[in-house]
Simulated assay, not measured.
Amino acid sequence: MAFQLAKRDLRKRMRGVFEGLSSAAIVQQSVVATNKFLSLAEYQNAKSIAVYLSMPTGELSTRSIVQDALQSGKCVYIPYIHKPDKVSVMDMLALESMAEFESLQPDKWGIPSLQPTQIPGRRNCFEASGLDLIVMPGMAFDEGFRRLGHGKGYYDHFLTRYGKWSEKMPFLVALSLHEQLLAEEIPVVEHDWVIDAIVVGDGRYLVRRT
């Protein structure tokens, strides 16, 4: 319970940080982080990637990453949240083109999202050859590669499912505004996944050595 309260308080604090950020600052950091991300060998060598689609505020934009990946001929998968058994589940489904990306409708958080009518026949990463890399969102990160999500557990649950499906996990890269990378340790519990690398909007790149 103490961990949950600590996470709740940190999320509240981070929302205050995001409210103080200008859109121009986020755009500038997005350009820097994107350029760094696109230079990573793990990205350049990846054949299939999953990418979060960014909210209008409070996180780095992934638009240029999606565009580059599609132009490079990579298989691109994006989150789709649905309720197959009355419990919300996140799958990673194929994005076919930049034109399709442009046509996506925003959900209640302003995130471009697939609609239920667009799902039949669409490739799921579990039906293909899996993922080489996942671009992870989050509200905050620390230098121990811990991540504070938005509290729904979508990515942690997805990664647990993926680990049961395949012994080889994708390379997990978080995109972080420099205001999101904290000096303090983020409270985590056993089922919270750590990430492999963090690309920061001020140009820094942190990678976890295993």
Rank of each mutant, 00 (worst) to 15 (best):
I26R: 09
M1S: 14
Q180G: 00
S64C: 08
V199Y: 04
L177S: 03
R147S: 13
I119L: 14
I49K: 00
S113M: 03
Q118D: 15
V200N: 08
G151H: 09
A99I: 05
Y205L: 12
G149S: 04
E96Y: 12
K164S: 13
Q67D: 13
S113K: 01
S166L: 01
V173C: 02
P112V: 08
P84H: 13
R15E: 15
S23M: 12
D9Y: 11
G138M: 02
S61D: 13
G203K: 07
A183R: 12
L206V: 10
E19D: 15
L60K: 03
P112G: 05
E143Q: 12
L206K: 07
L40F: 07
Y52A: 05
V189D: 02
V51Q: 00
G121R: 12
S113I: 09
T34Q: 10
T57E: 14
S39G: 05
D85A: 07
K108T: 14
V27H: 08
K152C: 10
Q67H: 11
D91K: 05
G163D: 14
A183G: 15
M98V: 08
L159R: 01
H191W: 14
M90V: 01
M139A: 09
H157D: 15
F158I: 09
T34N: 11
Q180M: 02
V199A: 05
L131P: 02
D68R: 05
K7G: 00
M92I: 13
I186Q: 01
Y162M: 04
A174N: 01
N35F: 12
R204Q: 11
A25P: 07
P137N: 06
R123L: 06
S72G: 07
K164L: 06
A94Y: 13
F141C: 01
A174D: 13
F18W: 14
T34E: 08
T160I: 07
R13M: 06
L175D: 03
M169C: 00
P106G: 00
Y155I: 02
E179H: 15
R11V: 05
F126G: 07
R147Q: 06
V87G: 03
I49S: 05
S176W: 10
I134E: 03
Q71K: 09
S129I: 04
R209Q: 14
A99C: 01
